[in-house]
Design a protein around this nucleic acid. Sequence first.
RNA 1: GCGCAGGUGGCAGAGCGGUCAAUUGCAUCAGACUGUAAAUCUGACGCCUUUAUGGCUACGGGGGUUCGAAUCCCUCCCUGCGCA
Length: 405
Amino acid sequence: MFKFKIKNIHKKSRTGFFDTPHGKIKTPNIATVATHGKIKLLTKTDHSRANPDLTIANTFHLFVNNKVKEIKKAGGLHKWSGFKKPIMTDSGGFQVFSLGWGRAHGTGKVGKIEIFFEASRKFDVQKFANNKNPVKISEKGVVFNYDNKKYDFTPEKSIKIQEDLGADVIFAFDECTSPLHDHFYTKKSMERTHRWAVRSLNAHKKKNQALFGIVQGGVFEDLRKKSSKFIGGLPFDGFGIGGSFGEKQMADVLDWSLSGLPEEKPRHLLGIGKIKDIFIAVKEGIDLFDCVIPTREARHGILYVKSGKFAIEKGIFAGDKKLIDGNCGCFVCRNKITRKELHCYFKSARKADNKKLSTCDVDRLVLGKRLATIHNIHFFKNLFGEIREAIADGKLDKLEREYLF
RNA sequence: GCGCAGGUGGCAGAGCGGUCAAUUGCAUCAGACUGUAAAUCUGACGCCUUUAUGGCUACGGGGGUUCGAAUCCCUCCCUGCGCA
């Protein structure tokens, strides 16, 4: 189980197959984010229409929403959700950041240059003070302060929950650092994450689940290399590259992060990403991704097309009788649903005069968002199909030029 | 014809003597979203420019009261409802 077979290598890129109890994952590939075990807004039928190759659910959010017992009782995420292909679960390590320093710092994990400047100027102001972080981190683990309740998490607990959830691939519990953290903090955090990685390994008993360790180290070369070597030396089934990035440093950070990992095991770049970043990462040798972009942006009315993404709510689409993409094979385009129709679904449900939306309006709006979600998932699935083909043909650069993002 | 209620920026609709170029929503335009606090959030939205505690034109038309009017008065025009 969990054999990873590399099929083609072109420069640093590779294609391959990763065996899981729910089938082979062709790599490179992307997991569609299904935080609560299901893709937001999609029905079961929608799910099979979108037909992602794999999904990733979230340990923290399922736990906080009291779903774990129910899912365990049903026999795990696959039976509970009806999705028969590979599923991953994230450990909750990202929420240590997104609900913690991310909120305190007001930043995402991919830092923008301006924010660095801002931060260096204001670093000692209260905004960045420790007491602003609603997540308390200690050697033992983490206490989340979420929704006015406290939740204790430890590596052991995260693994236990992930075993109950029963995904094919699970992740070690880590701390995702903020791009605004300095070398000192990032180092301390990384070392703690390393100790948590060992604890996660020791806690993991169910051998029908692959456990991936996570490389940290922020934007710092020495830390990334050290983390890569340390985590790469542990008997994980695969590896996640986690933590924060500078917006312009993706390639470097990946190069350092992969430097100590064994070639023959899969590498998953956690939470990335944008089309540009995906190409950068594949060229560095990343095999797996997951990202909220396809689904979240769909809900925000952004449709992906090879020539760039566009916002379907814009006025120019009110009378546009073209398909989203004439060459697209997704459920929406195959069924000849036009941009005009989609525009209508998104716009028809706007509330007026402070009135609440009628149920009917909400249904139409949600229909638009569902269709957009199905299209975008297909777009990314198709992108990865083309990436695999291009790597095999040694034409990845040519393919990258076709995607105008 | 009489009575009543109204006429405010692309639309809906606040304001009812100064702090009003005018709340708010929609529409429009621009932007954001990277291991989902997100079916979300941000900005612009009369015209002009040296982009400013700047200038100009504006709340149906005209006239008036007032230091000052979208806000009060007169008149005309228009709309809706009721009665003839």
